[in-house]
């Protein structure tokens, strides 16, 4: 296997345990997952199945209790805070359900924000990247607006631009349509599909099967484990019984 064909994300036997008082909660139990460069993966499953926890670990917001995680062939499960922050800034683009734009910053400043955390990036380069990202999502005409002056759909497009501006290796989207009506939700999904077609690697958490279908591959989680689609249906039926 050449380096180009190596998976962008490779997770093996990943476990995440939360300890609350004396209660031990296994959010993830022995998860194996690979995502290739340019792939569009949807992660789905019922509430509490561990999909957001998995996404947080993939996004280096959280660390696994055990297991291995390689990003771009480099092990990242034991990095310190500063190194994880650097990789988040350069390799990962986040799209949140609640958009998480910063209310005091303009559209332009919100998109520029991750670039300001990069050392020695000239402002001309930052501006070029910001404008490209905003044009890509069709929001270049609103760059002086504040988030509160935008609709939900527009805010999410700005959030996508912010994720794109840093030219990350992978986009991580956590229920990106969760706070949008169906029309705006569909538009955002179209945007992600377009980005994928242009070569972006996307990993999206969703529990809406309509949106999951936009992905190339669907990963199902149940009780902290990756399961096959048929098995998921069975497990869910059992759970209902």
């Amino acid at each position: 296997m050449t380096e180009a064909n190596l998976p962008l994300i490779q997770i093996a036997d990943l476990t995440k345990v939360f300890y609350t008082d004396e209660i031990e909660t296994h959010a993830l139990s022995g998860v194996h997952l690979s995502i290739a460069k340019g792939e569009y993966v949807a992660m789905s499953g019922p509430s509490g199945c561990g999909k957001s926890t998995l996404l947080s670990i993939i996004g280096l917001l959280d660390t696994p209790t055990a297991g291995r995680y390689q990003l771009n062939t480099k092990p990242v499960e034991n990095l310190d805070f500063a190194e994880r922050a650097r990789i988040r800034n350069q390799e990962i683009g986040f799209i949140f359900q609640s958009f998480n734009l910063i209310g005091d910053l303009t559209v332009y400043e919100n998109v520029e924000l991750p670039l300001t955390y990069r050392q020695r990036m000239p402002s001309a380069d930052r501006k070029k990247r910001v404008m490209e990202a905003l044009e890509r999502v069709g929001m270049a005409h609103r760059l002086r607006h504040y988030p509160s002056q935008l609709s939900g759909g527009q805010q999410q497009r700005v959030a996508v631009a912010r994720a794109l501006a840093g030219k990350p290796s992978i986009l991580l989207a956590d229920e990106p349509t969760g706070n949008l009506d169906s029309r705006n939700g569909e538009a955002v999904m179209e945007l992600l599909s377009d980005l994928h077609r242009e070569g972006a690697t996307i990993c999206m958490v969703t529990h809406d099967p309509r949106f999951a279908k936009h992905a190339q591959r669907e990963v199902h989680l149940f009780d902290g484990k990756v399961v096959a689609e048929e098995e998921l249906h069975k497990l869910m039926q059992d759970a209902q019984v």
Binding site: G59, L61, F81, A82, A85, R86, R88, N89, Q90, F94, F96, N100, I102, L113, P114, Y117, R118, R162, G166
Partner: peptide, 16 residues
């Protein structure tokens, strides 16, 4: 707090 969380998710270091 949440804003700080977002900034950190976007790569802000503690010094930032």
């Amino acid at each position: 707090t949440r804003e700080i969380g977002v900034r950190m998710a976007l790569g802000a270091q503690r010094l930032h």
